[in-house]
Amino acid sequence: MGQLTIILARVLQAVPTIFGIVVVTFLLTRALPGDPAAYFAGASATPESIAEIRVKLGLDQSLPLQFVAYLQDLATGNLGQSISTGQPVATELLRRLPASLELTLFALLLSVAVAIPLGVLAAVKQDTWIDQVCRFIVTAGVSLPTFFTGLLLVYVFYFLLGIAPAPLGRLDMLHIAPPQVTGFLVLDGLIAREWATAWSAFKQLLLPGITLALFTLAPLARMTRAAMLQALASEYLRTARAAGLSSTRVLMVYAFRNAMLPIITTLGMVFSFTLGANVLVEKVFAWPGIGSFAIEALVVSDYAAVQGFVLSMAVLFVLLNLVIDTVYTLIDPRVRIEG
């Protein structure tokens, strides 16, 4: 009951945020330079044909009226139609979202698998050369623009060595997508028992995944180190050590468990900015995610598409925070009592 109320309260809290996002996105898209009507009227359009298209898109109306129309559409769950792809924005996003999520989650998984051990190691060996090396490695990862790392990896592993598959999206051309269950091709491939497809999807995922993971190592590893240091210095750990518990047990069970909270918070933030960084990586790897869709839409001032993209991102982010809060209540009993 208590937990449910907390979650409900969080959802209600998100409502004004989402409204704010709707307003900001609307204004931002209208401030974009260029006239979508002129753009979509195409080469050799006449002023009349541009005016025709403007009416068709509803852009001949005043801003407040456009906003009301937009809200009405939203209320009925209609995100509008992307003028550049001609598809409903919702369909487009749902088709592309799994690609971005698969990439982001895979990258985070990789990153967590490397960053947390590094962070713990750095904390345990605080101020020794190991600490410095860890710090050096993760900082180097975050110091290069993602598109640069991506192209470099393509150059070395695909172009020079020929180990990696061609950077051509989610599947190489030999395979076709397995029946959609999760939308994640690797998982879907496994579910459908099409091992070769799953393997191919995994290989495609590897380079963009590593590119993104390198970029997210630093915040995770740093936070792990800091949180571990704090946990290790706390009273109850000293007590636990004094009580003669083995040091591995102290480390893994007590210290790490307590360090998890800030790590999870950081993970949420990292997730958000990884989705942002996706935009660039998707371009390098021809990854058919929502990031590349957003760039395309932004360049041609495709209002509905940009709005839909940002809105879905925001909702995703709110959902993510909800999940994090829930995980919080599960890990940390104190939160539950407070609620």
């Binding site: 192209l151 393509v154 950077p167 051309m173 371009k283 390098v284 021809a286 590349s292």
Partner: peptide, 14 residues
């Protein structure tokens, strides 16, 4: 098969 590859460097590599 018409494949869309946005980065020209990637196209060249391929």
């Amino acid at each position: 098969i018409i494949r869309e590859v946005p980065a020209s460097a990637t196209r060249r590599a391929l």
